Amino acid sequence: MASHIGKLPVAVPAGVEVNIEGQDFKAKGPQGSDSYTIPEGVTARVDGSEIVLEAADDLRPTRAKHGLARAMVASLVKGVHEGYVKNLEIVGTGYRAQMKGKGIEFSLGYSHTITVNPPEGITFELPDANHVSVKGMDKQQVGQAAANIRKLRAPEPYKGKGIKYADEHIIRKAGKAGK
Rank of each mutant, 00 (worst) to 15 (best):
T62H: 09
T62P: 06
T62Y: 08
T62R: 07
R63Q: 15
R63D: 09
R63Y: 12
R63S: 11
A64G: 13
A64Y: 10
A64I: 15
K65Q: 14
K65R: 15
H66Y: 10
H66V: 09
G67F: 04
G67A: 14
L68R: 09
A69G: 09
R70Y: 10
R70P: 04
R70L: 08
R70E: 11
R70S: 06
A71F: 06
A71P: 03
A71E: 08
M72L: 15
M72V: 10
M72T: 05
M72Q: 10
M72D: 05
A74K: 04
A74N: 08
A74Q: 07
S75C: 13
S75H: 07
L76F: 12
L76Q: 03
L76E: 01
L76P: 00
V77E: 01
V77D: 00
K78D: 02
K78G: 01
K78T: 04
G79Q: 01
G79K: 01
V80K: 00
V80G: 00
V80C: 01
V80D: 00
V80Q: 01
H81A: 11
E82L: 08
E82G: 05
E82C: 07
E82W: 02
G83H: 06
G83W: 03
G83T: 05
G83Y: 02
Y84A: 01
Y84R: 02
Y84F: 13
V85D: 14
K86I: 05
N87E: 15
L88G: 02
L88Y: 04
L88H: 04
L88T: 02
E89W: 05
E89V: 07
V91M: 11
V91T: 14
V91K: 07
T93S: 14
T93G: 12
G94Q: 08
G94E: 07
G94K: 05
G94W: 02
Y95F: 14
Y95P: 00
Y95I: 03
Y95E: 03
R96Q: 10
R96D: 06
A97D: 01
A97S: 12
A97I: 04
Q98P: 04
M99P: 07
M99G: 13
K100I: 06
K100D: 10
K100L: 08
G101Q: 08
G101E: 10
K102L: 15
K102I: 13
K102M: 15
